[in-house]
Structure formats: C-alpha cells, structure tokens
Simulated assay, not measured.
Amino acid sequence: MQKVNAQPNLPSRRNVLAAGAVGVGAVGLLAACGSDEEPAASTPTSAAPSPSTSSSAGSSTGSPADALASTSDIPVGGGTIFADKQVVVTQPAAGDFKAFSAQCTHQGCLVSQVRGNEIVCTCHGSAFSTSDGSVLAGPATSPLPAQTITVEGNSIVLG
C-alpha cells in the first residue's frame, strides 16, 4: 500500500518566511531609493518663522487675490517653499526676489528646506543656490529651473 499525502505540495514554513523577508526587503529598498516623492513639505516652509498661512498675503494690504505670498513672507537671505504650487521663492538680498521650480532636478523630489543661501532637497542631499538655482551639492547636476514671478506692491504673483 502506498502512502498518499493528503496535502498538496505546499512550500515549507522556512521557504515562506524567507520569501517574505526578501519581499519586505525589496519593498523597503524600493521605498528608500528611486521614489519620485519626498516627504511632503509643509506649505509654506522657510528658513525663518513661517507665516500662519500663505492666503494671508491678500487679506488687508489690497494685494491681488491670486498672490502667492506677501513680500514680508519671504525672509531676506532665505526663502519659502510653496509645495502646492511646486515653487520656491527666495530673497537673496533685500528686495531681490527670485523663484525656482521646487522639483529637484536629480529625481524629481520636492525640495524641502531653505537654509541660508541653499535650497535643499533632503531626498538625496542636493543643494541649490537661492540666487540663481545653480547646483551647490549633488547628486543633482542641473540647476533648478527659474520661474516667473511679479512683485506687485507687497504681493508676489506667480506667472
């Protein structure tokens, strides 16, 4: 008489656990590098104390309703990131406002900090100049593209 296995050919517990560990490791590896998203930057983010909201730009100064920010929202020698608009506005010198894409040229993460004269992408450590968007530290090799802004009175308007 031949013994018949009542269970179909199932992988051993050891094989299931090993496959699970490899799967989890691969997911963790994929999540750690190669993601096009960076942890969301708050809107706005700046090197100085941030304003309560970016919508306060047009509240009492008679500024345009489509204003991105008030000039007082952008610290001199720093900048503010507007993640929802994917733009970073800087003021390298008093009254000199610049705007750049907030999307890092390395792998497309949103930049997350403005520290002094540097716009920083914490995804992989790239840093860009607040005055011209040029690369200060890699792995990015291309500058942040400039964006068009207009200063109308105390308001900064994108586009």
Rank of each mutant, 00 (worst) to 15 (best):
M1A: 15
V4R: 14
N5E: 09
A6S: 15
A6K: 14
Q7M: 09
Q7T: 13
P11I: 08
S12C: 05
S12E: 06
R14V: 01
L17T: 06
A19I: 07
A19T: 05
A21V: 11
G25W: 11
G28P: 06
A31D: 07
A32H: 09
A32Q: 00
G34A: 00
D36A: 08
D36M: 10
A40D: 11
A40Q: 11
S42P: 14
T45L: 00
S46T: 13
S46Y: 07
S50T: 08
T53I: 09
S56E: 12
G62M: 10
A65D: 15
A67V: 14
A67L: 07
A67T: 14
L68W: 01
S70V: 02
P75N: 05
V76K: 11
F82W: 10
D84A: 09
Q86R: 03
V88W: 02
T90N: 04
G95M: 04
G95A: 08
G95S: 05
D96V: 00
S101T: 10
T105D: 00
T105G: 08
V111Y: 01
V114C: 04
I119M: 05
V120R: 13
T122E: 12
S126Y: 15
F128W: 13
T130Q: 08
D132H: 07
D132P: 00
V135H: 05
V135L: 04
G138K: 12
G138T: 11
A140Q: 07
T141W: 13
P143G: 06
P145G: 03
A146S: 04
Q147A: 03
V151W: 05
E152P: 15
S155Y: 01
L158A: 02
G159L: 00
G159A: 06
